[in-house]
């Protein structure tokens, strides 16, 4: 008798321990009376086992009572989850890579062997990518698993990325993308990388841009070419431009293709940044004095000639690349 009772009690306990406190006693009572109903009057241990087998796995029974999903992310959220994952992972990867490369440039003293530095950079890069991937995956999954559990709206229809039910109106937001106007991930990666590189060069110009000398031995940084004080004066506005560039790159990543609005935004960005850089370039003490002296001695040209040649040349290159980028943007936006 005890053996039989014991089996039943253990079964009931296995069910109820998985349930919220307030449901337990009522369900235990009902289960016990149901099991006794199912048993013949004079029953054996085998009868009890038979009945419990009919009721099945206590975990499944308990889950039925809880009315909660036995999955992390169900069909309702899976689509949104996947598209967010695909969008956030590359962004996080790019941002973290840029951080590493920037750190590398700042820390690069020129003393270590270049090959070693590059190898350790690659190693650190791969490791960081793995970490970032795991982090993004973890937090996004946690978020959606919680959403799945706390969403009281029990409608089982899958949601669109706006977390709304899909209607035909949504098609308006999904433009048909022709191959020629699409923006590749590589392009976005490239532009983010470029931003990181020029910002680094700008703020660490007195350690990176300048004259290097080496008599057969390792190169040594002799003198900076630019006047860091002048650059620092424009630091804030340059940072704003860099921020705008990053924002624009992320906007391109979201839109996936060139649009008129994007081309206009690109134009504004190019015009503003070109103007700002020209203003910085034509500052009289933009080039450091010692650098100008060094060059004029080296190439036997006058100070003015050198200024015109370098500053003028740089301005022309700036304007040409900006114009090319503006033209390219409108050309791609106009493709049907």
């Amino acid at each position: 008798m005890t053996m039989r009772t014991n089996l039943i009690e253990v079964y009931i306990q296995e069910v109820t321990r998985r349930l919220p406190e307030k449901m337990r006693s009522d369900i235990a009572l009902e289960l016990r009376s149901t099991i006794e109903d199912m048993l013949p009057n004079h029953h054996t241990v085998e009868d009890v086992k038979d009945v419990l087998n009919q009721l099945g796995n206590p975990a499944i029974l308990a889950n039925g009572y809880k009315d909660q999903p036995m999955h992390l992310i169900g069909p309702r959220y899976f689509d949104v989850y996947m598209s967010l994952l695909k969008m956030i992972v590359p962004i996080a990867a790019v941002v973290s890579l840029i951080t590493i490369i920037t750190k590398y440039f700042i820390g690069f003293s020129g003393e270590e062997a270049l090959l070693n530095s590059i190898l350790s950079l690659i190693g650190e890069g791969i490791w960081t990518l793995i970490q970032v991937g795991i982090q993004v995956f973890f937090w996004l999954t946690i978020t959606f698993a919680l959403l799945e559990r706390f969403d009281k709206d029990k409608e089982q229809l899958p949601l669109t990325s706006g977390l709304e039910k899909w209607t035909a109106e949504d098609l308006k937001n999904v433009a048909y993308i022709s191959k020629k106007k699409t923006i590749s991930k590589l392009e976005i990666f490239g532009s983010l990388m470029w931003t990181a590189i020029w910002v680094t060069l700008y703020f660490y110009a007195n350690q990176i841009i300048g004259v290097y000398e080496g008599d057969g031995g390792p190169l040594e940084f002799v003198m900076p070419a630019l006047n860091q004080d002048v650059l620092q004066q424009y630091g804030l506005i340059v940072l704003i431009i860099a921020g705008l560039e990053i924002a624009f790159a992320l906007y391109k990543l979201l839109k996936e293709q060139w649009t008129k609005r994007m081309a206009i935004g690109n134009t504004l960005l190019e015009v503003i940044s070109t103007i700002v850089f020209i203003i910085i370039l034509i500052k009289p003490n933009f080039l450091s004095e010692e650098f100008v002296v060094y060059i004029t001695n080296l190439f036997t040209i006058t100070k003015e000639q050198f200024n015109v040649w370098l500053i003028g040349g740089t301005i022309i290159i700036l304007i040409i690349t900006a114009a090319a980028s503006i033209y390219d943007g409108f050309k791609k936006a106009n493709i049907r």
Binding site: E30, Q54, L61, G64, Y65, D67
Partner: peptide, 15 residues
């Protein structure tokens, strides 16, 4: 009917 489905179903109907 699977009994592990039926009893939870009754609770759900009650809810």
């Amino acid at each position: 009917i699977d009994q592990s489905t039926l009893y939870p179903l009754l609770r759900r109907l009650e809810k």
